[in-house]
Simulated assay, not measured.
Amino acid sequence: MLLSQLPEDLLYYILSYLDYRSLSRLSQVCRSFYRFVNRDAVWKKIAKALLNTGITREGKDIYPLIRLKDRVKIAQNWYSGICRRRIPLRWKTKLLPWLQLDGDTLFLSQAADIKVYHIHKDSGRLQRSPFEVYSGHKGDVCRFVLTDSLLISGGSDGKIVVHSRRSDVPVEFSGHNQEVNCVDAKDGLIISGSRDRTARIWSLTSTAPRDTIPMCDRVWSVAINPTLSSFVTGTACCENFSPLCIWDVERSISLGTLGSDFRRGAGVLDIRFESPFQLFTCGYDTFIRLWDLRLCPRKCAMEWEEPHDSALYCIQTDGNHMIASGSSYYGVVRLWDKRQTECLQFFQLSSDPVSSPVYCLRFNSSHLYAALATAVHSLDFRQNGTQIR
């Protein structure tokens, strides 16, 4: 790191001791300097300008238990694409898996079950066998979401199953007439979307839906605004002129649509709120889009195009500068810097003759996990190895 990149107060601290000649004094200064440079406050300004350090745009620290100095070092590897690739889990039957990360625990849907694996702290590898399995669906799990105390899943059987993460008794909701393609939950509010062309609003106090909203298309994705006042649905865009619609939670009425001039079939497969006013979307039309609800709803604030014309199945952001996306062909994961229009790094995870989409990906400060049709892949960015493509 160049001296010009150091914070001003750190430079001043260094320069103030340049004239000391006493070895004993110098030793004391070095010890003091070492303690100083390991303080998170010294690195926070630097960390905010880098990728995936855990410092959000608002200054919140997502990983307060990990030294910021260490995260800054790992951030260089995220930017340069330096990592070690592993396949911690494989299976024979082709599936449409979904992932969630919760600290040192990975949740993975496989057919009708959701399996829970410990992540080894030092290696980042998964335990061979799950330490817990959530069941309850008669068909495959399509999507699931975690809250602090609940695991809520939607399945191809049309059911929504609510599991308590502290007990063994699941609650089954009436669900939909066809498979539940998407579900989101926050603070007792649950939104689901289905192939039956409806979105439904649920509360934990009843197993029947509070409201059912008719749609003209299959609902591929939903996301609840952090304020809990509204939610966004992403549809297949076969009948509607726009696949993105904002809905009022209390009144179940449309508050408007996002975008215009979508091609037929430009369905939205994933939606992520980054703040109450900003959300990211991706889907079949190969674009990642950032929408700012404070601006004109007809035009997105920014967009990034998948360079190989592949549909984008999933996205995740670090709350600051980085986006990770999963493509529909050959298990391609891309890293994007929001300050640039071109893709920053890409990793082709699938080497099989038959291509597989990245159905879901999740990352923490040091690892990225991606679920393909027959395996979970991991990228460990703590390494000093060679760049992987």
Score class of each variant (00 low, 15 high):
L255K: 15
S260P: 02
F280Q: 01
V232Q: 02
S254V: 11
V249T: 12
A266W: 08
G283H: 11
S230L: 09
V249E: 05
C238D: 09
L255A: 01
L244G: 05
R264N: 13
S230G: 00
L269Q: 11
G267S: 06
G283P: 06
S254K: 05
I246G: 11
T281P: 05
P243R: 09
D261M: 14
R272C: 13
L279Q: 05
A266S: 14
Y284N: 07
D285E: 13
P243W: 04
L255Q: 07
T286Q: 08
S252M: 12
V232M: 02
F262Y: 08
S252E: 15
T281S: 12
D261N: 15
D248F: 07
S242P: 02
R272S: 12
I253C: 13
L258W: 09
G259C: 12
F280I: 00
P276I: 01
F273P: 01
A236W: 10
F231N: 01
D248H: 15
T233M: 00
F280E: 04
F241M: 12
V232T: 06
D270Q: 11
V268Q: 11
Q278G: 09
T286V: 15
S242I: 12
V268G: 00
D248S: 15
E274W: 01
G259D: 10
W247K: 04
E274R: 06
L279Y: 03
S252L: 07
R251N: 15
G234P: 07
S254F: 02
I271V: 03
A236K: 02
D248K: 03
V249P: 03
I246C: 09
C245I: 10
L258D: 02
V268E: 00
D285A: 06
C282P: 04
V232N: 02
F231L: 04
P276D: 04
V232C: 05
S254M: 14
D270L: 15
G283Y: 11
P276E: 05
I253S: 13
E250D: 10
R264M: 13
R263Q: 09
C282E: 10
I246K: 10
G234Q: 14
T286H: 10
C282Q: 06
T233S: 08
S260Q: 05
F280N: 02
F262R: 06
W247A: 01
P243H: 15
T233K: 02
C245V: 10
D270A: 09
I253R: 14
E274G: 10
T235Y: 03
R272I: 06
F277I: 09
C245N: 05
R272G: 06
F287M: 12
G234H: 03
I271N: 00
A266T: 04
G259H: 08
G265H: 15
R264A: 15
F231A: 00
S275W: 02
S230Q: 12
F280P: 00
D285V: 10
